[in-house]
Design a protein around this nucleic acid. Structure first.
Lengths: 247, 247
DNA sequence: ACCTGAACACCGTTCAAGT
DNA sequence: ACCTGAACACCGTTCAAGT
């Protein structure tokens, strides 16, 4: 069937790329440009990426077996970028070190939604290459050593770091889902009115509504939770040093 | 173009459904059957759902404006199911109450991956109907009242609950991503060998590897983190009662 | 009022080429 | 060795009907 007049098949503008003009790194870089934009990680598609690179869609499949394969590479690159954005707070007291570090940890994800989607929402560690894992462990070495120097045994230092990491990513996830839903509601979704909390049936929640932060997303709420965990760590450390003094 | 012999257009088996034979609840129930199965939430599609119901795809659009609309309904129903699976631990000491409650909180999500995907990965509260929010607040009233009775001011009780909730969902997310990635690797993905941690460069991590739990997914690790948070709460409570005794 | 298939734009992926 | 379009199965959604 002949195309109707004015019917233009979506197609590449240039006739053909020379042979060496494409490579893995350029594709990954272009993908990061796309996901950093309006459409985000969800808006990334192979056709869109090909268009952005002015390449035939199928050319991408020479460098990546599948979209999953590409996503794994993006996740890996994203994780590296993330580690490099975390400052080094060594030298401060251990509790101050921790709160500064995880405050920034959270802030980096808030500033980079694409990084958040890549790492918090889909990057378990075993999906990464040996080099990426090594870089990850190097970061952990730095952070966990600081706790060991403060007096924590290695096992407890690991638990401490992981607890704060899990908590922080939980906060980030909460906030990310919250803002995503807000955007969707703004784009014409039905927004239900807040139900009024009857103080007769729900006396505590009626009062709690005054302190309520949707999605636990404020700096204050994050700090409150982090403070609880660090207080717990202070207790442990006190027990440990007391035990050591006794022995 | 006439279809080739043996070419069968995927189509409904029965000729046409009577007029009142479909409704919102049946569609939601069928969707839950599908997402509870092998394919999970990601495998849910409008055509698949229609096939499962033996209905024309477009019939679904009479009851749900869009797939997003359907997903919101599933999330809402899922949240209700989740609340009902949480047992009531009132009457126990506040710290025991909390640890039992959040231990179950985590276990429910581990037992129901579909519920986890629906609620942990995409259900911020403001996407829910007034009734669902009311039911949610009713649960919170029960849980937070227990903390208030133990001596926490309302604001701190809310923070305590939310901190544990965020931490627990962080653990659940971690584990969910981990198992999803494992499955993908088992389905023929390339699995990189663990890098060996050179004790010369990474002395602490080399020792930590012995205590390492991938994805913080063991019961032990979960309990360790929860214990830290509850220890932090004990500190607060002690400060509060000391302050009250002084006044 | 409720159910329907045809049709459209989009997606991921395979394949059989071209250079 | 690298790049390509045609083609396929699938998806979400709209529309103009049928009953």
């Amino acid at each position: 069937m002949a195309p109707r007049a004015g019917e233009v098949k979506a197609q590449r503008s240039t006739p053909r790329r020379p042979r060496g003009s494409l490579n893995r790194e350029d594709i990954i870089a272009a993908a990061f440009e796309l996901i950093a934009g309006e459409e985000g990680v969800d808006g990334l598609s192979m056709p869109r990426l090909a268009r952005h690179l002015d390449v035939g869609v199928t050319s991408l499949y020479w460098y990546f077996r599948s979209k999953d394969d590409l996503m794994a590479a993006l996740t890996e690159e994203g994780a590296d970028r993330f580690y490099q954005l975390l400052p080094d707070y060594r030298g401060r007291p251990w509790d101050e070190h921790l709160s500064c570090y995880f405050r920034d940890f959270r802030q980096v994800f808030r500033d980079n939604p694409a990084l958040c989607d890549l790492i918090v929402l889909r990057a378990p560690m075993q999906a990464r290459s040996p080099e990426a894992v090594r870089r990850f462990f190097t970061l952990l070495e730095r952070e966990i050593s600081a706790l060991v120097q403060a007096g924590f045994p290695v096992a407890e230092a690991v638990d401490a770091y992981m607890t704060l990491s899990v908590y922080t990513r939980g906060c980030v996830l909460n906030e990310r889902l919250f803002t995503a839903a807000e955007e969707q509601l703004d784009r014409g979704g039905y927004r239900a009115p807040r139900p009024d909390l009857d103080p007769a049936n729900l006396p505590v929640m009626a009062e709690a509504a005054r302190y309520w932060a949707p999605s636990f997303a404020t700096d204050e709420k994050f700090e409150a939770g982090m403070g609880l965990i660090i207080d717990g760590l202070r207790v442990r450390l006190a027990q440990l040093t007391a035990g050591a003094a006794q022995a």
